[in-house]
Computed example of a mutant assay.
Amino acid sequence: MSTTTLEPSKWKHLPPPPGFAQTPVATKTSGKVSSSSSAASYAALKEKRAWDFAISPAKSLPMQAFMLYMSGGGVQIFSMGIVFMLLSSPFKNLAAINSAFAPFAPTPSSHDKTASQVDPKAFTTLPLQKIVYIICNLLTLALGLWKCRSMGLLPTGTGDWLAFETRGSPPEIVLL
């Protein structure tokens, strides 16, 4: 017979885990907990999450590069699928950049009247994080274009443009 209920008195004397910060709890005798400190820590947490989200495309670059390496250099359905996903994801990410960063926008405080008119989906909110996000997505796009070039899909040589080259009449033919 196993018991699924835990005795609270058994666990209350354990030390907190490493890195755990005890937050003050408001009680009837102590009054209200300072809301400015909790709001500041919440704003700092939102900014940290915004930076984590901004560099997330760069964190996946090594795995994507390994997948491109493993897919081979030939033009097959598997390698084309990986290249298509790699090239389409930056465009999807950049099209939805404002809605992606909206949860990380700073919340307006009650005493700040200018922040209450800030649109969370505007490009001017979190501009540094959005610029880093754009740069990381451009790196992903550059990786995909490099793979297309190594597969021979990009027209980089003069032989790729021969269809558009016009030739003059040869000098051996004389028109009278």
Rank of each mutant, 00 (worst) to 15 (best):
L139S: 06
A26K: 08
D119W: 03
F91I: 13
I97F: 01
I134T: 04
S169F: 03
S9G: 11
Q129N: 05
L128H: 10
H111W: 14
A105S: 03
V132M: 07
S88H: 10
P120T: 01
G81I: 08
L87F: 02
K32Y: 09
K46H: 10
C148T: 10
T27P: 03
E7R: 05
Q117T: 14
P108M: 00
T156S: 13
L87S: 05
I77W: 15
A65K: 03
A105I: 00
G74C: 06
F123Q: 09
S34C: 12
L94I: 13
I77L: 15
D119R: 08
K12I: 06
F78S: 15
I134R: 00
V33N: 03
P170C: 02
S109M: 10
R167A: 12
P8C: 04
I77K: 15
A105E: 00
P18D: 07
W51I: 11
P15A: 03
T114L: 14
S88N: 11
P155D: 06
P17S: 08
T114A: 15
A54W: 01
P155I: 07
G19W: 11
L86A: 05
S41Y: 11
D52E: 13
S2H: 04
F104L: 01
A54D: 01
K92P: 02
W51R: 10
T158F: 14
L14V: 02
A96F: 05
L61R: 04
G152F: 06
G31S: 06
W11S: 04
P17E: 10
S79I: 04
P127G: 01
P90W: 02
M70V: 13
L138T: 11
P62R: 04
S38W: 05
S36I: 08
S2K: 08
L14W: 07
K10E: 05
L145M: 10
I135D: 02
V174G: 00
T29Q: 14
A39H: 03
M63L: 13
A65N: 06
K130T: 02
G152S: 10
K121H: 08
A50I: 01
K92L: 13
Y42L: 15
K10N: 02
N93A: 11
G144T: 02
P171L: 00
K28P: 09
A96L: 12
L86K: 04
G168H: 14
T4Q: 09
K59G: 06
I173K: 00
A163I: 14
F101Y: 03
I55F: 14
S37Y: 11
T23F: 14
G81M: 11
A44G: 09
